[in-house]
Design a protein around this nucleic acid. Structure first.
Lengths: 142, 142
DNA sequence: TGATTATATTTGTATATACAAATATATTTT
DNA sequence: AAAATATATTTGTATATACAAATATAATCA
């Protein structure tokens, strides 16, 4: 059944969740080539472009909770794609050479992903949709 | 950091996920009064209004996978809010009297939830946003 | 009618994320 | 400088959902 045919087609709860899951699925496919989940891939990209970035900053950029960031970094460390140095209360995250090598592939995946969804609504409409989702997100409590 | 300030503010992956999580949070608050998660509450509402509804139908209406529906029903059965009768390959789900009693409260929660987000963009813009999210969802593969 | 295929549901396991509490350090106040 | 407070991160645990395989039944075909 299509979302637009469900009895809850006017409910943002279902629409936003259904869309997010579709996007998750699409993004997973896009980053499968580098064997990373989308969130891991985005985190790695930031760590490459912003050496020494701290978990708190990553949480802000990725719109995730600090505890989630810790878990993401752990996995990337296991894969030897980033390293973490803790000094005092702060932690700095750096991409390893192995991680940095992935950058061109990561950018390719990103491009594929964007193309995977922008063609549906077109460039302009997609941008508007994202902007409205952001507006709502930002003005909602929490 | 606001979504609109993140370096990925133009990326649907983050926008849709961030919005869905905000909605999840808001919805959880709305249905806390009846001690149900939003998905459980919506499932119960359908079971009340459509006695004997089958898991497959619920999956379509709620935009969730059948396996997820099974898990939701299990929990509602534990709480004695629905019962399930299996005959052959089909299963029918019915709200119990205890479940039916909740209907007025469920509708109240639903109303609160809607009000919780529609005021941000206004009625019309909210409707448009939902419609666009549905359109994208429906036309995406998967 | 027996074999094959299709449909409906459930079960075992995995992923993505969050909440709350714990830890550790830094900053401010008195 | 000691006490109180604030900040950054991690850890233990929980939730929501999905995937893949298993189970069970029904429908179709040969």
């Amino acid at each position: 059944m299509k979302t637009s045919e469900s009895r809850f087609r006017r409910c943002m709860y279902f629409s936003s969740n259904a869309l997010a899951r579709k996007m998750e699925r699409l993004a997973n496919e896009s980053w499968q080539r580098v064997d990373l989940s989308p969130s891991h891939a985005y985190l790695l990209m930031i760590a490459i472009e912003e050496p020494g970035v701290q978990p708190g900053t990553l949480a802000g950029e990725l719109q995730l909770k600090p505890s989630t960031i810790t878990r993401l970094i752990e996995k990337l460390e296991e894969k030897k794609l980033v390293v973490r140095f803790t000094e005092g209360k702060t932690t700095n995250v750096y991409a390893t050479p192995k991680g940095k090598e992935l950058l061109p592939q990561l950018k390719e995946c990103l491009k594929d992903f964007y193309e995977g969804y922008t063609h549906v609504l077109g460039n302009e409409e997609s941008a508007k949709l994202v902007a409205n989702m952001n507006k709502l997100s930002d003005e909602l409590p929490g």
